[in-house]
Structure formats: structure tokens, C-alpha cells
């Protein structure tokens, strides 16, 4: 199989990139390891307000449907396929459970997103102990209430958002956090939690999940010295996200340690090109976390692909996208914005 652009990952970054290059008649293949397109958008039922100018505020699920509906007929989608390796002649190996398909691609865009990292404590493998992301998948995507007495670990935005949703469906909810204050910056969400009297236990440590066949209790210590025992039937662990980097490793891209973001990221320049000449990066896997940033980087990367393959003039468009990206990122979270600027600066030296 031959294609102009191979996109690894069919989340918002990959889909938006496919649509962008699709307008120029460029042939694309999207490789997606799960059984549907949409990535993390599939479990987002809330309005996303921070979308780029060209989009109106909408839920993640709507956005995903919009992207999928707009895919051009030049775009081939391979669901349940994984990018697993490279042949000596440079073709990429795309595996399903049966076979490996070699694909020759002029350009590659890696948009593999990020993975949740969970906290580990005694009893964490008991049935009923899941991640916040899994809680969202069950509740938002599959329409299943994960439990009637939920304990949410952590106070990030996704953790609090899930707490609210479960509470609204009639579950008892308690939030347990190791820190001494809320880490979510969304004041509106916080106010709601307070109004609804959802209990929050801070400075919890020595967590342990207990139960015979499934989780029944969550036990932890508090800084006051008290031991607290919560009856529960589902514990949702909120954790950090870390970019999925295997594809970059396979393609021999260089990495850089982003001190301020606390992890390794692929190196890329202002065109979103990695250290390997035909490989680009966009979205969560490039360390971009806001939804607008994810979509804007996807667009910048794909316009540069268009430029390289068709010699189209895209300079002005890209500049205005960068401007928008800088405005949005600058106003949202400075340290991570600067960290990404460092990566780009590093790629120049």
C-alpha cells in the first residue's frame, strides 16, 4: 500500500490533520488501534469551550462525529490496526491480529495521544478499582453507572468532573486527595462540588483497598493521625497523563527531557517536524494538553505536510495559527507553554 500521509492515531489531532490535508486532495491513511475513531473525544460529554476560532463550542462527542463526517474519500481508515515497526526499506508495518501490512508513506504524522498513569497501592488490582478515564468510558461512552458508592482519588479537573456526574446520577461520592488543596483550576466545578456537599478528604496517605471478591472499603490515614474507612463499590484513580512515545522510538526520533512538564517528549521544530525528516508530531503525544492546542498543532503540522508535498503557499495561514496558539496557551498555563517553546528552540540549535 502507498500513501502520501500516514497518520498514527485517530483522535482529534489525527482526525483534524486528515481533514486539513484532505482539502488539498492528499491521500491519507489513518491507523487506529482501537475499534473506533475519536480517541479520548469518545468519552467527552461536556462542552469544550477552548476550541480554536474555526470551531463553535461543542461536546467532545459532537466534535468527533463532525471530524469523522468530514473525512474525504482520499482517506483510508484502518481500525484495529497498530503501527508496530519499520522495514529495512523504510515501509511502515501496520499490524492487525492476522497480518502485518507494509505501507510506504511520503510523510508520517504521529498523533498517538497520551495514556493515564495510575497510582499503585495495596488492593489496587481488586475488581472495582479503576481509573478516572475508565470511569468516564463506562459512564459517558457506554452509559453504565460504575458504582453507587464511588470514591474518587485525586482532585484534578477530570476527577472532579466525574465526581459531579456520578453524584448527579444518584451515587454517593467521596473525594480523597493526597495533597492539601484542590488541584483543579476550574472554579465553577469547585463551587458545584461545595454546593452539593461532596466530602473531600485531604492529606490522605497509606491508601489500601479492601474486599474479598471486589472492592468493599477504602482505608487511608489522615495527617491528624486518624484512620478513615469508606464503604465503596468503585474506586476511580485519577492520575497524570503521559504521552505515548513508542511510535517515535520506532522511527528513531530524538527525545528531549521537558523539565517543567516532568517527562520525555519528542523533539520538534516550529513546523512540528521531529528530528526525522519525514515525521511530524501533534496533539497530546507532543506534550500539548489543551484541546485548542491539540487541534492547532495538528493543523500546523498538516499544512507543513501540504507545503512539502504540493509546494502550496501556507506561510500566512501557519503564522496566524501560531499566533492563535500562542495567545491561547499563553493565557492558560504559562509553565507548560514555556517548556514547549524550549523544545522548539532546542530543535533549532
Amino acid at each position: 500500500m502507498d500513501t502520501d500521509l500516514l497518520i498514527i492515531g485517530g483522535g482529534p489531532a489525527g482526525l483534524h490533520a486528515a481533514n486539513t490535508v484532505g482539502q488539498y486532495g492528499i491521500r491519507t491513511v489513518i491507523v487506529e488501534e482501537s475499534n473506533a475513531l475519536g480517541g479520548l473525544l469518545r468519552q467527552q460529554v461536556h462542552y469544550i469551550n477552548d476550541l480554536p476560532r474555526e470551531f463553535k463550542a461543542q461536546t467532545g462527542q459532537n466534535l468527533s462525529e463532525y471530524f469523522i463526517g468530514n473525512l474525504s474519500d482520499q482517506c483510508t481508515v484502518l481500525l484495529n490496526h497498530i503501527f508496530t515497526g519499520v522495514y529495512k526499506d523504510g515501509r511502515l508495518g501496520i499490524a492487525n491480529q492476522e497480518t502485518v501490512i507494509p505501507i510506504r508513506a511520503k510523510r508520517v504524522l504521529i498523533a498517538t495521544g497520551a495514556a493515564e498513569e495510575t497510582m499503585i497501592f495495596p488492593g489496587w488490582t481488586l475488581p472495582g478499582v479503576i481509573s478516572v478515564g475508565a470511569g468516564q468510558i463506562l459512564h459517558h461512552r457506554e452509559g453504565v453507572l460504575p458504582g453507587k458508592k464511588a470514591v474518587i482519588l485525586g482532585s484534578s479537573e477530570p476527577a472532579l468532573s466525574l465526581s459531579m456526574d456520578l453524584f448527579d446520577k444518584g451515587s454517593d461520592v467521596a473525594i480523597v486527595d493526597g495533597g492539601s488543596e484542590i488541584s483543579c483550576g476550574n472554579q465553577q466545578l469547585l463551587d458545584e462540588i461545595v454546593t452539593k456537599n461532596i466530602p473531600i478528604y485531604f492529606e490522605a496517605f497509606n491508601l489500601e483497598a479492601l474486599g474479598t471478591d471486589e472492592v468493599e472499603k477504602l482505608v487511608f490515614q489522615q495527617s491528624s493521625g486518624n484512620e478513615k474507612k469508606l464503604e465503596t463499590d468503585v474506586v476511580c484513580i485519577g492520575g497524570e497523563y503521559s504521552p505515548i512515545l513508542e511510535s517515535f522510538e520506532i522511527l528513531d526520533c530524538k527525545f528531549t527531557y521537558a523539565e517543567k512538564l516532568g517527562g520525555w517528549l519528542p523533539q520538534y521544530d516550529h513546523t512540528l517536524k521531529t528530528s526525522v525528516n519525514h515525521v511530524f508530531a501533534a496533539g497530546n503525544c507532543a506534550g500539548i494538553t489543551s484541546m485548542s492546542g491539540i487541534l492547532l498543532t495538528a493543523e500546523i503540522a498538516s499544512l507543513n505536510v501540504v507545503h512539502e508535498l504540493m509546494n502550496e503557499q501556507i506561510q500566512e495561514q501557519v503564522e496566524s495559527l501560531w499566533e492563535e496558539l500562542i495567545n491561547i496557551e499563553d493565557s492558560s498555563f504559562l509553565p507548560s507553554f514555556h517548556s514547549r517553546k524550549d523544545i522548539i528552540a532546542e530543535a533549532y540549535t
Partner: peptide, 9 residues
């Protein structure tokens, strides 16, 4: 020290 799919297969 990269691997290649040819040899892997």
C-alpha cells in the same frame, strides 16, 4: 541498534 520488521518477522 534499531530493530526491523523484516528480521522480526
Amino acid at each position: 541498534r534499531r530493530t526491523t520488521l523484516d528480521v522480526i518477522q
